[in-house]
């Protein structure tokens, strides 16, 4: 059984292939812990309500709103943030397709796109839309993001996306 009381407790989180000690309240969301304790600030605090996707990280490979997960729930899970990527071609596609303006939504979109490419390398338009609808962007109008996602899927062709 896993328990955590109201006082702060040290737990281990597995983030980007490393095991890290963090001191958390039960009430701390994964978003808070990543940002405030691990300095992984690419996960953005934009709605804290699961409405915008800017805080998206991968939990065991699945896109997850880190604002809707407690840190204590995430113990024993494999968490990936965009800081765990290193010049992946997926990031380059977003650059090359002009899919980035202010950049605030970008890490969330890229992580979601990465998970999509791994799970559905041959995703049709409806699946792309279903997945990407989880992330809001206010700058681009989505056209360039759509082009980037499609290009990632095309080039991916079953191999690893990172």
């Amino acid at each position: 059984m896993i328990t955590n009381g109201t006082s702060k407790t040290v737990v281990k989180l597995h983030v980007n292939g490393e095991t890290r000690d963090v001191m958390i309240r039960s009430a701390d969301t994964l978003l808070q812990t990543l940002r405030e304790q691990l300095g992984l600030t690419a996960a953005k605090r934009a709605c804290q309500n699961g409405d915008c996707g800017a805080c998206t990280v991968l939990v065991n490979g699945e896109p997850t709103h880190s604002c809707l997960s407690l840190s204590i729930e995430s113990v024993d899970q494999h968490i990936t943030t965009i800081e765990g990527f290193n010049n992946s071609f997926i990031q380059q596609e977003f650059v090359d397709k002009w899919a980035i303006q202010c950049g605030f939504c970008t890490p969330g979109f890229i992580l979601n796109c990465y998970a999509l490419a791994n799970k559905h390398p041959n995703a049709d338009d409806a699946t792309i839309e279903e997945w990407m609808q989880s992330n809001l962007c206010r700058c681009t109008g989505y056209q360039e993001i759509k082009e980037a996602v499609k290009s990632v899927l095309q080039k991916h062709a079953g191999g690893s996306v990172s």
Binding site: G50, T56, V59, P63, S69, S134
Partner: peptide
């Protein structure tokens, strides 16, 4: 909700 939320 949305796809990402439905993972949770």
């Amino acid at each position: 909700a949305d796809h990402t939320s439905r993972n949770k």
